[in-house]
C-alpha cells in the first residue's frame, strides 16, 4: 500500500473541495437564476470537462502554465517553483477538471428553489445575505453536499490530467491512481490490487452516500 500516494490524493481532493465550494455556489446561483447573454456558452464551458479527454485539458494546461510560458515564468518568480509538476499545478488542474461535478448538482439544487420562496424571504425583510444563509443554503444543501462528495470522489480517481500536469513525482504529485498504474507497470499485482480495492470501496461508499442523501431529502421535501 502506497500510503504517501493515498495521503496526497486525500489532500488533493480536500483542497479541490475547499476551492470549489465557494466557486461552485457563486457560479451555480448565477446560472440557475440569472438570464444573461451567452448563458448557454457559460453552461457549455462548465460542462466541457465532462466530454473533454483529460489529456487534452492537461495539454492545454501545460501550454498555458508550463515553465516556459509567461504565466509559468511569473509563477516561478513569485513562488520560487514552477506550477507544472507541482502540487499547486495539480490542484489547479483538479479544480478545473472538477468544475462540472461541483457546479451542476449545485445548479440543479438552486434551480429547484421556487422564485416566490426567495421573494417571500425578501418581502419578509431578509437581506440577500440572510436569505442565502437561512433559506437558499438550507434548501440547496443536499445538492451542495452531493456536489462536494462527487468532486472529492472524482478527484481521488482522476488519472489523465493529473499525470499530464503533475507528472509522477512520489510524495509531490504521485496520487493513488497514478501509483496503481505505476504498480501495474512494475508487475506488482498485489500492490495494485490493494489500492484498486480501496479506491473501489471508497467510490462506492461516496456514490452510495450521495444517492441515500438525495432519496432522504426527496422524501422530506416531497
Amino acid at each position: 500500500m502506497n500510503w504517501p500516494a493515498l495521503l496526497l490524493s486525500l489532500k488533493l481532493s480536500a483542497w479541490t473541495v475547499v476551492w470549489l465550494l465557494p466557486f461552485g455556489i457563486v457560479v451555480a446561483r448565477q446560472i440557475a437564476w440569472r438570464e444573461f447573454r451567452g448563458r448557454a456558452w457559460v453552461e457549455a464551458l462548465v460542462a466541457l470537462p465532462l466530454v473533454l479527454p483529460p489529456t487534452v485539458l492537461g495539454y492545454y494546461m501545460l501550454s498555458v502554465f508550463g515553465g516556459a510560458t509567461p504565466i509559468g515564468s511569473a509563477w516561478q518568480s513569485v513562488f520560487g517553483h514552477q506550477l507544472a509538476f507541482s502540487f499547486d499545478g495539480l490542484l489547479l488542474a483538479s479544480i478545473l477538471f472538477n468544475i462540472p461535478f461541483a457546479v451542476q448538482p449545485m445548479q440543479r439544487a438552486f434551480q429547484s428553489i421556487p422564485l416566490d420562496v426567495r421573494e417571500a424571504a425578501w418581502c419578509s425583510g431578509m437581506s440577500a445575505w440572510r436569505t442565502f444563509l437561512t433559506i437558499e443554503f438550507p434548501l440547496a444543501w443536499p445538492g451542495i453536499v452531493s456536489a462536494l462528495v462527487l468532486t472529492f470522489a472524482h478527484t481521488m480517481g482522476e488519472f489523465g490530467v493529473v499525470l499530464m500536469m503533475g507528472g509522477n513525482i512520489p510524495g509531490e504529485t504521485q496520487t493513488i491512481a497514478i501509483a496503481i498504474y505505476d504498480r501495474v507497470q512494475a508487475f506488482d499485482e498485489p500492490g495494485a490490487a490493494t489500492m484498486s480495492g480501496l479506491l473501489l470501496a471508497f467510490s462506492m461508499v461516496a456514490i452510495g452516500a450521495v444517492y441515500a442523501l438525495s432519496n432522504r431529502i426527496g422524501r422530506r421535501h416531497g
Binding site: 421556487p114 416566490d116 417571500a120 419578509s124 425583510g125 438550507p138
Partner: peptide, 30 residues
C-alpha cells in the same frame, strides 16, 4: 422589497418548506 413595509401572501403561499409554521412566522421578525 426589504425596505418596503409590506406583508404579502403569495398565490402559492411560498412558505419556507424547511421551517415549521412557527419558524416561518419568526423569520419575518428581524
Amino acid at each position: 422589497p426589504q425596505l418596503r413595509s409590506v406583508g404579502i401572501v403569495f398565490q402559492s403561499y411560498a412558505l419556507f418548506p424547511h421551517l415549521s409554521a412557527l419558524g416561518n412566522v419568526e423569520s419575518a421578525m428581524a
